[in-house]
Design a protein around this nucleic acid. Structure first.
Lengths: 251, 251
DNA sequence: CGCGATTTTGATCAATGTCAAAGGTGGTGG
DNA sequence: CCACCACCTTTGACATTGATCAAAATCGCG
């Protein structure tokens, strides 16, 4: 599958062979333009699970495209309560803010070991200016992200614990399915703890645990050893309140 | 204050005199470019309180800039539960989706009587293409909106009822203060019912009522006859968990 | 084997929801 | 001008969801 990669290179080393190019901000660029981007970027960086890409309150001088692995964005309150905004998969564009001087409101942390493509924040405007398609692409991405944040908000604000968990797991299942090359089974790798799930959904980890038990006992799904297995997709879709007409697929 | 408007015209009739131009997508345009936009738009429309600009599930053929009044975006679940995503004030850009064919996931409804500047969705890409600054501006707006959605999500997911209410009312107070020309008092017009507040915060209206009572009894704020009055700003800021360093001002 | 992190379970508690009814309040039409 | 109506606010009694606290079981790993 890595046939056209030069031996010894890893995904992201060359833009032209980038595995997430079509999901990322770079999608509208042609091969020649990629060369410009490639010379602009700072390079590819590996970040171990648990490390932060940037932290709430910092002024952030880089932006990132996630190449491999899972990351998350979260905000913490002074007393330690945490809200995870989003789980990020390859292709995600992270850390962009309008005002580069303003401290960023949330933290980005690697959940698994990840690899990111790094750009200096400085000069981004100019790059977007030279490549207006990237601006438009960027607007599209941000608009989509806003839509996902809206859906997430609806879950947290108005659904029961069971509905929230069902909704999130279904969403993650579909996102992974869309991008990952491996098989068409009813199971995916899910590198999240129950605390991650709780912090994303506004629940405690112990309530997530009980909810997952109920879902398992009802024969709907299981989460075991970091793999999510869907047993009864129809009922899952129903509980999750998932509507394929409005719920836009997501990478 | 309306001195430079032609007698008989209303805000929005001419782009050059548009009161929200500097908050809206049109901000980066100069006078000549405005002429292009002015010929592109469909015109200005008045919409009465309670009417919908577009509805969840429709394919939406127009986008709007809000000129006057309050609107809101919300999603409803099949059984009627409602989540308000956002209260929109003048300058807001509404209804844009990447894929113009896909049904929109949320409803936009006027809270008070409003006036909107209307554009056909068709041709927007071309307009953005001709005016790349508008694309970039659009990306900035969408990114900001995403940030606000994130903050909202944190409130709903992790704050108590009292903190949520305090946070929302403070946010609205500051937003209004930023834009409205009238005085520097500690009160603003707030055309929301307690049900609106509850649906935005993931609470029932009766719990909002009790929470407002507590806030009033503690001498922090009052909401009465559609006006919000701040009595003790310091304590409000504290309860709301408001951090001016990361909480970007918003129009 | 031992340790830290995670999952699981139980017992109890608190925050918020539900249901119901009683006041406003403003608008409308007779 | 009044009566009525729709809508909103307010309050009470009670129900329920999900939180909290605590401890045991399990797991990965050095």
């Amino acid at each position: 599958m890595a046939g056209q990669r030069t031996a010894g290179t890893k995904p992201g080393d060359f833009c032209a062979q980038c595995g997430v190019r079509n999901q990322a901000v770079c999608a509208p660029l042609d091969i020649d333009e990629l060369a410009v981007v490639e010379s602009f970027r700072s390079g590819v960086r590996a970040v171990p699970a648990g490390a932060e890409l940037f932290a709430q309150g910092e002024v952030n001088t880089r932006v990132y495209t996630l190449l491999e692995g899972w990351a998350m964005l979260y905000e913490t309150l002074e007393d330690g309560r945490r809200q995870i905004m989003e789980f990020c998969l390859p292709g995600a564009f992270l850390g962009f803010q309008i005002d580069p001087e303003r401290p960023i409101a949330y933290t980005a942390q690697a959940i698994s070991d990840i690899r990111v493509c790094t750009f200096p924040r400085k000069g981004l405007e100019e790059l977007f200016h030279e490549k207006p398609d990237m601006s438009f692409r960027m607007a599209c991405i941000a608009t989509r992200e806003q839509n996902f944040a809206f859906q997430h908000l609806t879950s947290v604000g108005r659904r029961t614990a069971q509905e929230r968990v069902a909704n999130l797991l279904l969403e993650l299942f579909l996102r992974i399915r869309l991008t990952s090359p491996d098989g068409a089974g009813h199971a995916i790798r899910l590198p999240l703890t129950q605390e991650h799930i709780g912090d994303a959904l506004g629940l405690t980890s112990v309530h997530v645990n009980r909810t997952l038990r109920a879902l398992r006992e009802d024969g709907i799904l299981t989460v075991r050893d970091g793999v999510l297995r869907i047993m009864d997709a129809d009922r899952l879709v129903e509980i999750a309140g998932y509507d394929p007409k409005v719920h836009e697929p997501r990478t």
